[in-house]
Amino acid sequence: MFDTIGKPFFEALRAAAEPRLGREHPCLAAIERAAGEGGGDATVEAQATLAALDPDMLASLMADAHKPLRESPVSMPGAWQGGGVRH
């Protein structure tokens, strides 16, 4: 399930975070690990660094990350196929 929903989410979040936070920000490194490696430890680390951000910055990042996922015509059917849901 993580590969179909988690990795695309963290990839979109990485794309949103880099211009807002900069390459050197520790949050970006954690997001990149979650997008690349996946897994529980990388996800927990990314969540912790995101939770430490200013709430307004976090809201902006989440809005920026969700936009391409919302607008992608393949994002939802791709997630359904990976999750075992058939219509």
Rank of each mutant, 00 (worst) to 15 (best):
P8E: 13
P8L: 04
F9Q: 03
E11D: 14
A12H: 10
L13R: 09
L13E: 13
R14H: 14
R14M: 08
R14Q: 14
R14G: 08
A15Y: 04
A15N: 15
A15D: 15
R20V: 13
L21Y: 12
L21V: 02
L21K: 12
G22Q: 07
G22L: 02
R23M: 07
R23I: 00
E24C: 00
E24R: 15
P26L: 05
P26K: 12
C27H: 05
A29S: 14
A29W: 10
A30P: 07
A30G: 03
A30Y: 10
A30V: 00
I31G: 06
E32P: 00
R33L: 09
A34K: 08
A34V: 00
A35M: 06
A35W: 06
A35T: 06
A35Q: 11
E37W: 08
E37G: 00
G38S: 07
G38R: 12
G38H: 08
G39R: 10
D41Y: 03
D41L: 11
D41I: 03
A42T: 01
A42V: 01
A42S: 10
T43R: 14
V44C: 01
V44E: 15
Q47S: 11
A48F: 05
A48N: 13
A48Q: 15
T49S: 03
T49Q: 13
T49N: 02
L50H: 02
L50G: 00
L50R: 04
A51W: 04
A52K: 11
A52Y: 05
L53A: 05
L53H: 04
D54E: 15
D54C: 01
P55I: 01
P55T: 04
P55Q: 15
P55M: 06
D56Y: 08
D56W: 09
D56E: 15
M57F: 00
M57D: 07
M57A: 08
L58H: 12
L58G: 13
A59E: 14
A59G: 06
A59Y: 02
A59R: 14
M62K: 05
A63N: 10
A63K: 12
A63E: 14
D64N: 09
D64M: 11
A65C: 07
H66W: 13
H66M: 15
H66E: 12
K67W: 06
K67G: 00
P68T: 01
P68K: 09
P68Y: 04
L69R: 07
L69I: 04
R70P: 00
R70Q: 10
R70M: 12
E71R: 03
E71D: 14
S72Q: 02
S72L: 02
S72Y: 05
S72R: 09
P73V: 09
S75V: 01
M76H: 07
P77L: 05
P77N: 03
G78P: 02
G78S: 12
G78N: 15
W80A: 10
W80I: 01
Q81T: 03
Q81E: 10
G82Y: 08
G82A: 01
G83P: 00
G83E: 13
G84P: 06
G84M: 05
V85K: 14
V85D: 08
V85A: 13
